[in-house]
Write a protein that binds this DNA or RNA. Structure first.
Lengths: 146, 146
DNA sequence: GTGCTTTTTGCGAACCATTCGCATAAACTT
DNA sequence: AAGTTTATGCGAATGGTTCGCAAAAAGCAC
């Protein structure tokens, strides 16, 4: 049975690698390792963290290669780059768009999607005379008391 | 008649300076110049741009002071810091809540409000069982070709 | 497989926005 | 005016990210 995420998107290494070859990229050992590490990461690792994890598999991998690989994957739309306020960029495999609601009391992160939200922001952009190509949205809140 | 921004918020230098003294900060010529330049900026200038503008009034102002002043004002909540994707941070006097659409081709920032968006995200939070207390939202796009 | 061409790699140096250390110079206090 | 505190300008340091280059590996044709 194929592995899927909570929204039902199928994810697989071979699919990621296929996309890379389709884009004319060569499949190197380093890229395979980095992709695998990224795909297995449940969190949103920084480049440095990612590099450390990759080095545990192949200690010769340099951070420059990690940067280059992530840049490439990001251009292909396979990987999402997040610029959180506190310094360095963080990455995750793009498993389909979802948003985050951070519980301000527990720190827990709730993921959700909303077609309605996507539709509305596209409409807002269009009303302003723009074609939206990207957006960021994050919520902070606490559980409703009954 | 008091000057107001496009959303009707009253803004004034003296108010900003008063907040600074209340916070125990000394009012220096540099701070007055930086504050004035920021307050008169209709755009969302980068630190470097801000520094250039300030230097036209007082050429001895250093970029380190501009950074320090903006950091201070940001801590006081008088100034908003935005980390748009394109490298350097950009600032604006806090005139109340609105959103930003960044033109990916020109770097220009379009401001907008949407009651509909506010209503929708509150509803989304409520549906998830949460009371929203804060959120971030930013759009990136380019002008529609006709 | 063996060549040949193109892409990728690791390394360190370069880059760039931002921050720091420090001695000097202002601002507030009395 | 004198004393205390905070702010400034300078240049050097920092830290994440990118670049240049020669060496290594990948893909392709035979």
């Amino acid at each position: 049975m194929a592995k899927t995420d909570r929204f039902g998107y199928k994810i697989s290494m071979s699919m990621l690698l296929q996309k890379c070859t389709e884009a004319g990229l060569k499949i190197t050992d380093q890229r395979k390792v980095i992709l695998k590490v990224l795909e297995e990461s449940e969190d949103h690792p920084s480049v440095e963290t990612l590099c450390e994890r990759a080095r545990q598999v192949d200690s010769s991998i340099s951070i420059a290669t990690v940067y280059r690989t992530l840049g490439l994957l990001n251009e292909l739309g396979l990987v999402l780059k997040h610029d959180f306020k506190d310094s360095s960029a963080r990455f995750e495999v793009d498993h389909g768009h979802h948003y985050h609601l951070v519980d301000t009391e527990t720190g827990q992160v709730v993921e959700f999607q909303s077609e309605e939200l996507v539709a509305l922001i596209n409409k807002i952009a269009a009303d302003l005379g723009y074609q939206m190509v990207d957006h960021t949205f994050e919520m902070f809140g606490h559980k409703l008391k009954k």
